[in-house]
Design a protein around this nucleic acid. Structure first.
Lengths: 340, 340
DNA sequence: GTCTGCGTTGGAAACGTTTCCATTGCAAGC
DNA sequence: GCTTGCAATGGAAACGTTTCCAACGCAGAC
């Protein structure tokens, strides 16, 4: 069994240099002569040598790995975000470890412990609970980190979405058209995006000098079934909403199903705005108005903040905050309400 | 700066035992007395000690990490599959490294190299190109691996989906109802699932003694826009299909949009079957018939095969093959074609 | 010709574990 | 009372790198 792993000593021996020099070539250090560099590179190619990541990580105290804790990759927004972050950090030599927190505090604590044990160079986190003591304790580290769209008074940098003005804009658009009974469907989870959306919703009514229809703010699960039932129920109620604002891909599809099942048409009978902009929103007839946010932009902000910290490029320890804007595209799914 | 990392020596010292004994406790070895175990555990808790993963991996030659290369997490099927695999392997102490191959051969080769350099304990791969020499070469390793739904004559275990009988079943259902002009929309990528679906489609016609309408087998991109245009175009053609079989979440939503834009109704004017079963398919009125496959089951098969190999539980080096069945749920989206 | 300084190199320590091997203590067998 | 065997333990080597430090060679200055 000559099946010995090839290590840096083999490379150094074949190249006729010391192990130290071989290492310097591998890491692109400056103080190395052209001749040595070439000899080592030739040896590496010849042997098909690949450095052991574990040994590198152990010695250099850098894993070149970033932990990413989101609630659920099954959520298309997160999936796209993850993909964009992965692409961006890969070009910088980092690899992503993805973990689904599933809005389960215990699980999230486990994940944080895992990230610490594996000595991630940095982490990107979106906890499902902003006050869980375990999570807060775990964040009390000097590990570079970026928090995504959560209100937590911790020392980490954060990237936030500007839900309030975005929502205000969408609601105002509907108010301008004459809608008064506007329903808002948000997820039940008590986290920043939901809070802020509701806040923006109310703010729009307030700015208009109108009372906010609190009973039309519906917090429910994001399952297709729950959404379908909710929308259908509202439409069949005595004083139905004339417009809906719904959140998310699955939710949007289910809302469309419910509206059509109730025999209503968009935009004549019901106006509709989506938070998030899945592809099929644009092919719908009429195209569904949406609050969209570009995952590439978000990924870029996250990566920039994190890279600064990981490379110690940015010395100021004060937490930074980067806000990404939603864009409102009205499209054809909104029209004045039908006179009763 | 007393900010020294806590290591196993600190634990051993505090517990009053040797480093070796501390290690044995940590790894749950058998030959360790109850007294020692307790002392060490107390010390660990007191110090908040967490073993260095890098050192463990270096010494024990096991990273407890599984690489997972899929084409694209943005695809809901893969997202759900990943999530299920992650949950399953986590209970066994493994962590998943997710990488998007994006059907890009060069990128996939990079990912394979990464997996090798980082010494994954095992890998799960779904290459976008089944014949790329780089990928094939990278798979010529003794690293435990599972290939998911790809036809590759390599030495790895594989989990396959039974597209042919599933598709045959769906098409036969339509043929039984009297449909003859059935359109099949599949992705353009040349990989097993697409090949097999087409195969099953043709087989169903053949078994029926009918010629297969080759011109209705449409290979296109899975973008919502392309699908919408394709379906609308077909519906407005002189001899339009009376039934559609479409693949995937986005595609299904776009097809629904196109059918409705063309002023047709399901199932009276057009019958529709979905490959894959997104939540909103069930809330649609009528509910959309679907070929469904349970991600949990697939994840379980993959995990079982892989764990066998990683633990060397299963000695036979011959590649194993596990086939997962689709289930056809006709639901209400299919009806006899309207007489012309 | 000697000295200084710089760029390059070799050698060895260190990173934090696991695992092997030898040793110890103790009970059982004779 | 002496040997044998086994469970538990301590100590040290090993895993494969990076990085520190000392040494070296050589060019230029004096």
């Amino acid at each position: 069994m000559g099946k010995k792993r090839i290590d840096i000593r083999d490379v150094a021996a074949l190249a006729g240099v010391s192990v130290g020099s071989a290492s310097r070539v591998i890491n692109g250090a400056v103080n190395v002569s052209q001749a040595t560099r070439e000899k080592v590179e030739r040896a590496i190619a010849l042997l098909g040598y690949r450095p052991s990541h574990a040994a590198q990580a152990l010695r250099s105290r850098s894993t070149k790995t970033v932990g990413c804790m989101i609630s659920d990759v099954t959520n298309p927004l997160y999936a796209r975000l993850f993909q964009a972050i992965e692409a961006r950090l890969r070009t910088e030599g980092y690899v992503l470890l993805l973990a689904n927190g599933l809005n389960n505090a215990e699980r999230e604590r486990e994940i944080m412990a895992l990230f610490q044990q594996r000595r991630m160079d940095g982490i990107i986190v979106t906890p499902g609970n902003e006050r869980d003591p375990g999570i807060l304790a775990a964040l009390n580290t000097d590990m570079p980190a970026v928090i995504v769209d959560r209100d937590m008074r911790t020392r980490q940098d954060a990237v936030m979405f500007d839900h309030v003005p975005a929502m205000k804009c969408a609601v105002t658009h509907l108010l301008d058209l004459g809608h008064r009974r506007i329903a808002l469907l948000v997820s039940r989870v008590e986290v920043r995006p939901n809070r802020r959306r509701v806040e923006g919703f109310r703010a729009a009514f307030r700015a208009y000098g109108l009372p906010c229809p609190e009973e039309l703010i519906r917090r429910q699960t994001t399952s297709a079934r729950a959404t379908f039932d909710e929308v259908l129920g509202l439409l069949q109620s005595p004083d139905p909403p004339t417009a809906f604002i719904v959140q998310g891909t699955n939710t949007l599809a289910a809302a469309l199903n419910a509206i059509s099942a109730a025999g209503r048409r968009i935009p004549d009978d019901v106006s509709l705005i989506s938070i998030g902009d899945p592809d099929f929103a644009q092919t719908h007839v009429p195209p569904i108005g949406a609050l969209r946010i570009d995952p590439e932009v978000v990924a870029d902000r996250i990566a920039t903040l994190l890279l600064d910290r990981m490379r110690r490029t940015f010395a100021d320890p004060a937490p930074r905050r980067s806000v990404v804007r939603f864009q409102f595209e009205p499209r054809g799914s909104c029209a004045p309400p039908r006179p009763r």
